[in-house]
């Protein structure tokens, strides 16, 4: 096996141009997947590439570098639309995992239960893929193509996640449903971002994870919420037909039937939270 730890992106891309490598970033998925088996693959450790770490702004985007850890996300001052990503960050494993694991690695690992995916979907995030021959951008929804499968080509490196500024409007909330308090893989999770005009919803972005092979936006629900007064969103949120796009499965964490029922509730809680964060009380939810 070979082990490379380049200190610049160019060196990393040159290595990738040369043949397939297994990319190691935070290690929090790499080592668990490896278990006790010997590591025989060539490993490209991107941990020394300083330029990939951190969150920066451009006129059009907020850009999360590929080596940015969950803790970095928590500690960075970001618009309220990012609250859901920061809330997700605090729910990934526990502090040890958040300090080492990266947001980008969470996407590349492409688990259906990846906590980072719904918030980033709800911000229309795009993926920057770099190779020696150039850069291409893909919507996140097109990047993760299946359970543990992405559109990354062997010669490419995910170098950044970028969020369009137009998608950083509104308030947001992430709700994770798990069977214990810490260190838990989600049974299901929901992220909602809502933009208000007065007490009306002008835009809703809602994404759900662990209820389909790849986390997804609930387009029909978003459309149905648009233009609705905050005080009248509950019947919309409770309409089961708006969740028909989901296809949950039975596994050790919960049954498909359970997920179908529970997702309606966690989406509702996320939506209420997002409305609240957007500066609007959503009515007497606690008295329901």
């Amino acid at each position: 096996m070979r082990y490379a730890r380049p200190d610049t992106l160019d060196k990393a891309l040159a290595l990738l141009a040369d043949g397939p490598w297994r990319v190691l970033a935070g290690g929090t998925d790499f080592y668990p997947a490896q278990g006790a088996r010997p590591i025989l693959d060539d490993v490209l450790d991107i941990g020394a590439i300083a330029s990939l770490r951190g969150i920066t702004s451009t006129p059009d985007h907020i850009v999360i570098g590929a080596r940015t850890s969950w803790t970095d996300v928590v500690r960075t001052d970001l618009p309220p639309a990012f609250d859901m990503l920061r809330q997700a960050a605090r729910e990934v494993g526990a502090i040890q995992i958040q300090n080492a694991g990266t947001v980008a690695g969470n996407l590349c690992n492409a688990s259906p239960a990846a906590d980072g995916v719904p918030p980033l979907l709800a911000m229309d995030a795009e993926i920057e893929l770099s190779s020696a021959s150039g850069i291409r951008h893909l919507p996140l929804a097109d990047f993760i193509v299946g359970n543990r499968r992405t559109a990354r080509r062997p010669n490419e490196l995910l170098t950044a996640i970028r969020v369009p500024r137009r998608s950083t409007l509104g308030g947001s909330r992430f709700v994770k449903l798990g069977s214990r308090r810490y260190l838990v893989i989600s049974v299901a999770m929901a992220a909602a971002r809502i933009v208000l005009n007065g007490d009306h919803i002008t835009h809703a972005a809602v994404a759900v994870g662990a209820c389909s092979e790849v986390a997804m936006r609930l387009d029909a629900l978003e459309t149905a919420l648009r233009g609705v007064a905050v005080g009248e969103m509950d019947p919309v949120l409770a309409d089961p037909s708006l969740y028909d796009c989901l296809s949950p499965i039975d596994d050790v964490r919960g049954s498909a039937a359970y997920r179908r029922r529970a997702v309606v509730e966690i989406v509702s809680r996320a939506a209420h939270g997002a409305v609240e964060a957007a500066g609007m009380k959503a009515g007497a939810e606690e008295a329901a």
């Binding site: 730890r5 929090t28 790499f30 080592y31 450790d45 941990g47 040890q96 995992i97 300090n99 080492a100």
Partner: peptide, 13 residues
């Protein structure tokens, strides 16, 4: 100064 799981950290880093 930051807590990490030593089992998930490559020696090189």
């Amino acid at each position: 100064g930051e807590p990490v799981c030593a089992c998930l950290m490559p020696a090189a880093s």
